[in-house]
Design a protein around this nucleic acid. Structure first.
Length: 938
RNA sequence: GCUCGAGUGGUGGAAUAGGUAGACACGCAGGACUUAAAAUCCUGUCGGAAGCAACGCCGGUGCGGGUUCGAUUCCCGCCUCGAGUACCA
C-alpha cells in the first residue's frame, strides 16, 4: 500500500495556512478572548534545538483547542534578539550583529514554520527592532519620571514629589527611596542648585544612577557576569578579574517587594515557582537594634554603633557575642593591637577560601576575636565582637548578634570559643548538646520581659527600641535593586544625555534613540563601553549620550503588550487592543526564568498598572513550566588496545569481562541502543581499518546515560532530522507522549515509531488500497451504538485531560480510540469527522488533509466546533461491581446502575460466589461505593 | 546544609476524589502473509510456586512503621535520585 505521504501533505498545509492567513487575529468583541504566549527565544546561531519545541507544541495545542471551543485566540511568536552571542561574533568577525541576528531569525522562522504552529506571524516582534525598542526606551523614561509613594502604595509622577518638596520639604513624605536620604525643609529644597536638586531626586526616581560593584576584567577590557567568572579569573582567556565600583543605572524594584509577594496569590502558577520568587525576595520581619561600641564618647553614639537585624529580637537577653563579616571596613578600627595579627591572618585566610571550600566546611566553626566589645542596649552588658566568614557583608548590615541558646549555629560558635550560653525561656530544654529554638514558655534571665510570652515580649521590646531610639521594628528584604546598565553594544541605548555631569532624559519626540554605527565592538581605549566608539553621536549635537546599553531583560519585560498591536507608532499598544486582550491567559516557558525574567516582568507590569496604562496588576494568569529535555548519550566499549591489532569493541553486556572502557558514540547512528556498526566504522577514522565487534545475540548493544545535551557528548538530536524521517505530526504527538510536560526528561527516540504508527493508523481509517490505488472508504452510514460509545468516551477524556494540561494522557486516549474504531471497522463519516476535530490540535496536518478528503471546505477544521459529549451514549445500564471480602477482590457481580445501596448489598450477599467466599460467616458490615466497589467485612 | 519535587515491569509512563496497580506506547518472544525481506496484522509479555487446566492461588508501586473495610495515593521515620539555592541571622 502506498504509505501516507506526510512530507507532501505537511508542506501543503503549511503553505495553505500561510497563504490564507488562517491564524490572523484581530480584536473581536463578539468572542471571548484567549491569549496563549510562549517565552520568545533568543535566536542563537545553533538554530532551534530539540528541547525548544516541547513547550511550543503544548501551547500550540492549547491555542488550537481554544479556537475549537470558540475563543478568539492570540498566539504570537517573536524574538528576544538583543544579546551577547551576536556581539561576540561581531567582535571576532566585524560583521554587524544586526546581520547575524537577521540570519538567525530567518533560520528560526523556517524551523518554526516547519513545525506547523498556528502563530499569527503578522504579529511578530523583535526586541532589537527600533520600532520595538522605541517603547522599551519610552518605559524607561516613565520609570525615570516616577517615584514610589508608600502612602498611596503606587508609583506617582516625580512632579508630584517636587511640588511637595517646594511646599513642605520631605519630612512627611513616605517613599521608597535611598536609605541615606536626609530630611530637608522646603527652604532647603528651594536653595539647592539645579544640580543638587537633580541629585536629590535620584534618591527617589524608580530608575537612577547608582554606584555598584562589577566584575571588571582589565585583560578583556570589559565587564563580566558572575557566570563568566570562574575562580577569580575570566572564563574566556583566564585573565584576572577585579571588583570595580562603577556608575550604573539601577531599577528600584525593591519598592515593589511587598506587592510582588502579594501578587503571587492572584496567579495560577506552580507552587515551586512562587516559592522561588518568595525566597528570592526574602521578606523577613524583625527588628534592627544598635549596639554601641564600648570605647567611645557618648555624644557620637549614632555613628559608632553596630546595627544588627534580627528576626528574634525576643532573644536579646541571650546575646553573648557579636559577629561581623570579615570584609566590613569597620573591622580595622575595631581591632585591638593585641588581636591585630590574628585578625589579619583570619581576613587573609577568609579571602583565600574558594566557594567550594566554604560549602564543604559548613560544619566547621571558624572565627576570630577582634579584642573589642559592644554594649547590649537592654542590659548594658559587654558583648565581645568576633569575625566569622559565615556572616555575609552583602546581607543586611553584615553583623549578627549571637544567641547560642536559641540558634544552633550560634551554639556551635559559642561552644567552640567558650562563650556563655544563657537560657532565656523556661521551656527551653537543657543546652548541653544543642540549641533549642522554641518560642514557647515564659522568659527568664530577660530583664524587662521576664515572665512574658513570645508575643507580649516582642511588643514590649519594639516599643522600648522606638522610645529610646536604639532601633525599630523592621521588615528586611533580601532582594536588591536591579542593575540596569551593560557595557555592551548590542542592546537598547539608554535615552539619556549628560549636561554638567547630570543625566537628563532626551525629548520624547527624539525616540527611538537609534543604536549608532561603530567600527569596533570592543570597549574604547579609555575603557568606555563600545558606544564610546561612535563618531559624532551627541544629543542636539553637543551633549554626550549615555554610553551603556540596557540589559537583556529590558525588552522581554513588556513584550506581550506589543504583540497586541505590534505596528502602532503612537503608543506601545493601542488602548482598545490592550483592553480587549487584557493579560496572558497561558504563559509557557522554562522554569530557569523564575527569579529573572518572571520577576522583572511582574515589576514592570505593576509599574505600568500604576500609570493606568495596563488593566491588570499581574500579566500572566496561568504559567506552565515545561521540563528540561536532557540528552541521552550512548556508549560503545573499547577493550584494551593491543599494538598491531585492530581495535575491538564489545557489546554492553560483555564490557566487564573484557575490562572495556566506555566511549561516547553519536546517538544518531544508534537505534534502540543498537549500534549500526557499518555507520560507526564510516564515521570514525581513529579506530583502524577493520575494527572487530563482539556482539550479543548478533547485535551490538550500547550503554546509555542521561547527561546535559551537548555537542561534545554526541547526544544532540535536531528536530529537523525527526521531521524529515517521520514528519511534523509524529514529532508533535511524540513529544507530547513522552511524559508529563512539566517533568524533566531525557530525549530519546526509542519509541517514536509508536507515534508514527499512530499517524499511519489514522490514515488507514479513511483509506484502503484497492488494486494498487488508494480509495477513500468513508461512508455516510449511520454510526452504530458501539461506534458512538467509543467516540464519546474519547471526547469526554480528551476534553477533561486537556483542561488539566495532561497532554500525554490525551495522546493515549486518541490512540485507544483509533485502535477501537479500527477494530469495529468503523468507516462512518459522522464518527470520523469528530475524531479529526479531536486530533487536529495535536496532528494538524493530517487532520486538515483528511477533513478535506471527506468533503469539507479546506482549512475549516481550525475553527470547527469541538465535539459535544453526550453522556447517554456511554451510559451503561449495568455496572460490574468488583466485590471484595476483607479488602481482597473475590468476585464480580453485574448489577443495574440505578439500584439503591441497600438493594446492592442484598444482591451481593445473595450472590453464589460471594456466598462461597463467605463460607458461612456473617458479614460485620458491607461498604458500597457507587460505581466503584463493594467491600464485605467479615 | 536548607527548600521543593520524584522513586511503579526490560524501557517511557498510566491510575484525575483512598476503591480490581501496570492503561497506552516501545522493546522482546511466537505466529500469519511473503520465494525472502520490509510493511502490515494477530497472540503473549510484573514476579512466583504448583499444575492437565482454570477467568483460580501467593507476592508485588524505594525501605520500615501507622491510619483505614481498603493505601501507588494520607501520616511518621529512613534511603536514593533530580531541581533550585548558597551560611539570609
Amino acid at each position: 500500500m502506498a504509505d501516507y505521504n506526510f512530507s507532501l501533505v505537511e508542506k501543503k498545509w503549511q503553505k495553505f495556512w500561510e497563504e490564507n492567513q488562517t491564524f490572523k487575529t484581530g480584536t473581536d468583541p463578539n468572542k471571548p478572548k484567549y491569549y496563549v504566549l510562549d517565552m520568545f527565544p533568543y535566536p542563537s546561531g545553533a538554530g532551534l534545538h530539540v528541547g525548544h519545541p516541547l513547550g511550543y507544541i503544548a501551547s500550540d495545542i492549547i491555542a488550537r483547542y481554544k479556537r475549537l471551543k470558540g475563543f478568539n485566540v492570540l498566539h504570537p511568536m517573536g524574538f528576544d534578539s538583543f544579546g551577547l552571542p551576536a556581539e561576540q561574533y561581531a567582535i571576532q568577525t566585524g560583521q554587524h550583529p544586526a546581520i547575524t541576528t537577521e540570519e538567525n531569525i530567518a533560520t528560526f522562522t523556517r524551523q518554526l514554520k516547519n513545525l506547523g504552529f498556528s502563530y499569527d506571524w503578522e504579529k511578530e516582534v523583535r526586541t532589537s527592532d527600533p520600532a520595538f525598542y522605541k517603547w522599551t526606551q519610552w518605559i524607561f523614561m516613565q520609570l525615570f519620571n516616577s517615584w514610589y509613594n508608600i502612602e498611596t502604595n503606587k508609583a506617582e509622577p516625580i512632579s508630584n514629589l517636587i511640588s511637595v518638596l517646594e511646599k513642605e520639604g520631605n519630612a512627611n513624605i513616605k517613599a521608597a527611596c535611598d536609605e541615606d536620604t536626609q530630611v530637608i525643609s522646603a527652604e532647603d529644597w528651594v536653595n539647592l542648585t539645579e544640580k543638587e536638586k537633580q541629585l536629590f531626586l535620584f534618591k527617589y526616581r524608580l530608575t537612577f544612577p547608582d554606584e555598584s560593584y562589577v566584575n571588571w576584567c582589565p585583560g578583556l577590557g570589559s565587564v563580566l557576569s558572575n557566570d563568566e567568572v570562574k575562580e577569580g579569573v575570566s572564563e574566556r582567556g583566564g585573565f584576572p578579574v577585579e571588583q570595580k565600583l562603577m556608575k550604573q543605572w539601577a531599577m528600584r524594584i525593591t519598592a515593589y517587594c511587598e506587592r510582588l509577594i502579594n501578587g503571587l496569590d492572584e496567579v495560577d502558577w506552580s507552587d515551586s515557582i512562587k516559592d522561588q520568587q518568595r525566597n528570592w525576595i526574602g521578606r523577613s520581619q524583625g527588628a534592627s537594634v544598635r549596639f554601641a561600641l564600648e570605647q567611645q564618647t557618648t555624644n557620637n553614639k549614632q555613628q559608632f554603633a553596630i546595627e544588627v537585624f534580627t528576626t528574634r529580637v525576643d532573644t536579646i537577653y541571650g546575646v553573648s557575642f557579636m559577629v561581623l563579616a570579615p570584609e566590613l571596613e569597620l573591622v580595622a578600627s575595631l581591632t585591638t593591637p593585641e588581636q591585630k595579627n590574628a585578625v589579619d591572618e583570619y581576613i587573609h585566610w577568609a579571602k583565600s577560601r574558594s566557594e567550594v571550600e566554604r560549602q564543604s566546611e559548613v560544619k566547621k566553626v571558624t572565627g576570630v576575636f577582634t579584642g573589642s566589645y559592644c554594649i547590649n542596649p537592654f542590659n548594658n552588658e559587654k558583648v565581645p565582637i568576633y569575625l566569622a566568614d559565615y556572616v555575609l557583608a552583602g546581607y543586611g548590615t553584615g553583623a549578627v548578634m549571637g544567641v547560642p541558646s536559641g540558634d544552633q549555629r550560634d551554639w556551635n560558635f559559642a561552644t567552640h570559643f567558650g562563650l556563655p550560653i544563657i537560657p532565656i525561656l523556661d521551656a527551653q530544654k537543657g543546652m548541653e548538646k544543642e540549641a533549642d529554638n522554641t518560642k514557647e514558655g515564659k522568659y527568664i534571665n530577660s530583664g524587662m520581659i521576664n515572665g512574658l510570652d513570645y508575643k507580649a515580649a516582642n511588643e514590649v521590646l519594639i516599643k522600648y527600641l522606638d522610645q529610646n531610639k536604639i532601633g525599630k521594628g523592621k521588615i528586611q528584604y533580601r532582594l536588591r535593586n536591579a542593575v540596569f546598565s551593560r557595557q555592551r553594544y548590542w542592546g537598547e541605548p539608554v535615552p539619556v544625555y549628560y549636561k554638567d555631569e547630570i543625566p537628563y532624559l532626551i525629548d520624547e519626540s527624539e525616540l527611538p534613540l537609534l543604536l549608532p554605527e561603530v567600527d569596533n565592538y570592543l570597549p574604547t581605549q579609555t575603557g568606555e563601553p563600545p558606544l564610546g566608539n561612535a563618531v559624532n553621536w551627541k544629543y542636539k549635537g553637543k551633549y554626550e549620550y549615555e554610553l551603556s546599553t540596557m540589559p537583556g531583560w529590558a525588552g522581554s519585560s513588556w513584550y506581550w503588550y506589543r504583540y497586541m498591536d505590534n505596528k502602532n507608532n503612537v503608543l506601545f499598544a493601542d488602548k482598545q487592543a490592550i483592553n480587549y486582550w487584557q493579560d496572558v491567559d497561558l504563559y509557557m516557558g522554562g522554569s530557569e526564568h523564575a527569579t529573572g525574567h518572571l520577576l522583572y516582568s511582574r515589576f514592570w507590569n505593576h509599574f505600568l498598572f500604576d500609570l493606568g496604562l495596563v488593566p491588570k496588576r499581574e500579566f500572566a494568569k496561568k504559567l506552565i513550566n515545561q521540563g528540561m529535555i536532557q540528552g541521552r548519550s550512548n556508549f560503545v566499549y573499547r577493550s584494551p588496545i593491543t599494538p598491531g591489532k585492530d581495535t575491538t569493541f564489545v557489546s554492553f553486556g560483555l564490557k566487564e569481562q573484557y575490562h572495556a572502557i566506555p566511549l561516547h558514540v553519536d546517538v544518531n547512528i544508534v537505534e534502540n541502543d543498537i549500534l549500526d556498526t557499518e555507520k560507526f566504522k564510516a564515521s570514525r577514522n581513529d579506530i583502524g581499518n577493520n575494527p572487530e565487534f563482539i556482539l550479543e545475540n548478533g547485535k551490538y548493544i550500547c550503554g546509555h546515560e542521561v547527561e546535559k545535551m551537548s555537542k561534545s557528548k554526541y547526544n544532540v538530536v535536531s528536530p529537523d532530522d525527526i521531521t524529515v524521517k517521520y514528519g511534523t505530526d509524529t514529532l508533535r504527538i511524540y513529544e507530547m507522549f513522552l511524559g508529563p510536560l512539566e517533568q524533566a526528561k531525557p530525549w530519546n527516540t526509542n519509541s517514536i515509531s509508536g507515534s508514527f504508527n499512530f499517524i499511519k493508523k489514522v490514515h488507514r481509517l479513511f483509506f484502503e488500497e484497492i488494486a494498487g490505488t488508494e480509495k477513500l472508504k468513508v461512508t455516510n452510514n449511520e454510526p452504530t451504538k458501539a461506534d458512538l460509545k467509543v467516540l464519546h468516551t474519547a471526547i469526554k477524556k480528551v476534553a477533561d485531560d486537556i483542561e488539566r494540561y495532561s497532554f500525554n494522557t490525551v495522546v493515549s486516549t486518541l490512540m485507544i480510540c483509533v485502535n477501537e474504531l479500527a477494530a469495529l471497522k468503523c468507516n462512518k463519516k459522522a464518527v470520523l469527522e469528530q475524531l479529526l476535530i479531536l486530533l487536529s490540535p495535536y496532528a494538524p496536518h493530517i487532520s486538515e488533509e483528511l477533513w478535506e478528503a471527506i468533503g469539507h471546505e479546506p482549512g475549516t477544521i481550525s475553527y470547527a466546533n469541538f465535539p459535544v459529549f453526550d453522556a447517554s451514549l456511554v451510559q451503561e445500564s449495568t455496572f460490574e461491581y468488583p466485590i471484595s471480602i476483607n479488602g481482597k477482590v473475590r468476585a464480580n457481580v453485574a448489577l443495574p446502575t440505578d439500584m439503591s445501596n441497600a438493594d446492592i448489598e442484598a444482591a451481593v450477599l445473595a450472590n453464589e460466589t460471594v456466598q462461597k467466599w463467605l463460607a458461612g460467616n456473617t458479614p460485620k458490615k458491607v461498604i458500597v461505593v457507587p460505581k466503584r466497589i463493594v467491600n464485605v467485612v467479615v
